[in-house]
């Protein structure tokens, strides 16, 4: 082949390659990349979504720092985060470890645990709204056997319980996913390690602590990452179950973003809240990424 034709063919093949990747990149820039960049810009303006935005400097950020609603929402996000870093992680680890130790019925249990994760969030919410209803749910069933503990307990309407109730429902939906994730990782552990531990006379707890946990560390870090980011950005269950109420008891940052930007048409300030939230989740991502890298070095 003469050199010039080869050059043309190379250029041609490059053009084809670019044509194949172009739709994905264009779509991405339109929906994610472009709006992300402009979000940063709008956070310095008084934009209302319609008229030309005016630059207001750091005004939105000053407002954010003094906004009690924002700190309340972020505080709730952190409570949510603490709950999710402990409860579903523990349930997932226990469930997966027990599953890895049995032979008969493991497949059935795995299916049972995974079904809540498949349910659509609006329906999960409906299930628990019914069960925790003070008149028509568990409370009334308990009444029939003479127990009246739950008669006046309004799980979602009482500010003392609402956030924990919402987190409880979200956790019921989510923990089975962690079981399946952890179980897959545990099955990847070399069986010889168990043998060795048993010969040394290790009990179940020692096996869990010295073999299983170190064996699934990358998966553990991955799970911590998605749980942390998911808790900071949580939207569905607070939105469906309580809408952020009562009196802000279950308000979270992403609810506040939508409320501010779309209902109050305060898009500039909404962008600032969203940006603050994103920076926070980026910090967690970097933190866990650092953790993972250190693991790989070890």
């Amino acid at each position: 082949m003469p050199p010039r034709r080869r050059v043309r063919r190379r250029r041609n093949s490059r053009l084809v390659a670019i044509a194949f990747v172009l739709p994905a990149l264009a779509l991405n820039l339109l929906v994610i990349g472009g709006p992300t960049v402009s979000s940063i810009g709008y956070s310095f303006t008084d934009w209302n979504g319609i008229t030309t935005p005016e630059f207001v400097g750091l005004e939105n950020w000053r407002r954010l720092v003094g906004d009690e609603a924002f700190w309340n929402a972020i505080g709730n996000n952190f409570v949510y985060l603490l709950i999710f870093l402990t409860v579903p992680m523990a349930m997932g680890l226990v469930g997966a470890f027990m599953l890895s130790r049995i032979r008969r019925g493991a497949a059935l249990f795995r299916v049972l645990y995974f079904i809540p994760y498949l349910l659509v969030s609006v329906i999960t919410a409906q299930i628990w709204r019914n069960i925790l209803d003070p008149e028509f749910g568990l409370a009334s069933a308990l009444n029939d056997v003479g127990i009246h503990w739950l008669d006046e307990v309004y799980f979602f309407a009482d500010g003392r319980f609402a956030l924990y109730s919402v987190a409880f429902v979200d956790n019921w939906h989510f923990w089975g996913f962690l079981v399946v994730l952890f179980l897959a990782a545990m099955q990847g552990i070399d069986a010889g390690q168990y043998e060795a531990a048993r010969i040394d006379g290790a009990n179940a707890w020692q096996e869990f602590w010295h073999i299983v946990l170190p064996g699934i560390r990358p998966t553990l870090t991955f799970a911590l990452t998605i749980v942390a980011i998911g808790s900071l950005l949580v939207y569905d269950y607070p939105f469906i179950l309580t809408g952020g109420g009562p009196a802000g008891a279950t308000d979270v940052a992403s609810l506040m973003v939508n409320r501010t930007a779309f209902l109050a048409r305060d898009a500039g300030y909404g962008s600032a809240i969203a940006l603050a939230l994103s920076v926070l989740s980026a910090i967690f991502l970097v933190l866990f990424g650092f953790l993972r890298r250190r693991e790989e070095e070890v």
Binding site: V31, I32, P35, S39, G49, L233, A261, S278
Partner: peptide, 13 residues
Amino acid sequence: SLPVQMFIVPLFF
């Protein structure tokens, strides 16, 4: 890794 909140506001408008 970008959260939805990072782009949802300008995307809406």
